[in-house]
Nucleic acid binder design. Structure first.
Length: 404
DNA sequence: CATGAGCGC
């Protein structure tokens, strides 16, 4: 019947108070809000185990009119240095999570806070929630204004996008979830038009580059990057009108010879994308090294200064096939350690066993390395992260890997 | 440059 779906009046006077400083108590909230009218109850929500504040509370007023007044007069009121974010208690999370009416704002000048953002956007409709994102250094320069109705959001975007706020031109657009943004970025990437070309040397200008690439289709721009003296830096960009032409240009030109050099042509990337890609690439190489050298690479420490690659190789050559022997150098001087890599793990193991005997006979000292990353070294063992498994310490007692 | 988090007795 009707009684089952009707909303009790008491919920209408229930306010959600968010973004609370963790030390804010019921008593403090009572002190701030009770002047507005009689309060039925206040509850700061806390973790059941630790009893730490979850950073939000409910303030239940006896009269709806009082709650409404608090809502307009005391939103973003600062308690313990933080503006509290008032919302009507709304147990159904669907509206909050739908994202409808939620607006994203960026390029906000540092002094713009929750309140000034609210004031800048309040004329477009009822705001459910408004917030500038901050860290220890203050504003991070972007925020959110969540309107009750999508029409308000549309109006706000229409009127506010691109306007100056404290001399900064702000961007205002529909909020997009992380997932949405990522798939959008993926689509952009798939439909790229800008081609990056490198390794064409100094003898290049826009006209020449244009001649070479215009046969793949009409371009929007052609650019050769130059240093301060105006010399070509050996790379540049050709932006096509159509993605298919850009792709075609890459397929045909990548690896081609130009000015006697092999040029590279590929999708132009933003700096950040390039950086993260390089980082991933580097990490992959490292992983490969770990696998490749697992069990075959020896680490040798405390080498005499005059030991070179050849000495090292000779010393270990009787144990198997050496794929590399390297004394690490620092501007012409030995760093006192190096690596010997065998073609098979059995050879490496033999080398350690045999050298162990020999070195002990010489009054020296041998240790096995530890393979696991993140574990504490135990005496006479050495932690490695790149697949080196054996360590042989040559040198007087008293020095150990801990000196290294 | 930037695309949250948030609902109880």
């Amino acid at each position: 019947g009707d009684s089952e779906i009707s909303v009790p009046n008491s919920t209408m006077a229930s306010l959600y108070v968010g973004d609370l400083h963790h030390e804010v108590t019921e008593a403090m909230l009572y002190e701030k809000f009770s002047p507005a009218g009689p309060i039925l109850s206040i509850r700061v929500c806390r973790d059941a185990v630790t009893h730490r504040s979850l950073g939000y509370a409910y303030v239940n007023f006896q009269h709806l009119a009082d709650a409404e007044r608090v809502m307009t007069d005391m939103n973003l009121y600062i308690i313990k240095g933080k503006p509290v974010r008032l919302m009507w208690s709304q147990r159904d999370p669907s509206l909050r999570k739908s994202g409808i009416g939620n607006v994203f704002v960026k390029n906000l000048e540092k002094s713009i806070n929750n309140k000034s953002l609210y004031d800048a956007f309040s004329s477009f409709g009822n705001i459910l929630s408004c917030k500038v994102i901050t860290d220890d250094n203050g504003s991070k320069g972007y925020g959110f204004v969540h309107f009750e109705h999508r029409e308000s959001a549309e109006r706000a975007i229409q009127k506010m996008n691109g306007i100056l706020l404290n001399d900064l031109k702000i961007f205002v657009g529909h909020f997009k979830s992380r997932k949405d943004r990522e798939s959008e970025l993926g689509a952009q990437t798939r439909e790229f038009t800008n081609v990056y070309i490198k390794n064409f040397g100094e003898d290049m200008d826009e006209d020449r580059l244009s001649k070479i690439f215009e046969k793949f289709g009409p371009t929007l721009s052609v650019k050769v990057m130059r240093d301060d003296c105006g010399r070509s830096k050996g790379f540049g960009f050709v932006n096509f009108q159509k993605h298919e032409d850009a792709q075609n240009a890459i397929d045909n030109m990548n690896g081609k010879e130009l000015n006697g050099r092999q040029i590279y042509a590929g999708r132009a990337q933003k700096k950040l994308e390039r950086q993260t890609q390089l980082q991933r690439h580097f990490e992959q190489l490292k992983q490969n090294r770990i696998v490749r050298y697992q069990g075959v690479n020896l680490y040798i420490k405390n080498l005499d200064d005059d030991i070179d690659d050849e000495n090292l190789r000779k010393e270990f050559s009787s144990f198997g096939t050496i794929t590399s022997a390297k004394v690490m150098m620092n501007n012409g001087r030995s760093k006192g350690f190096g690596f010997v890599c065998f073609s098979a793990p059995e050879e490496a193991t033999t080398a350690v066993t045999e050298m162990n005997g020999r070195l002990v006979a010489m009054g020296l000292w041998v240790a096995l390395a530890q393979q696991k990353k993140g574990t504490k070294p135990i005496p006479n063992q050495m932690p490695f992260e790149d697949g080196r498994v054996q360590a042989i310490h040559l040198g007087p007692p008293g020095r150990s890997f801990l000196d290294f």
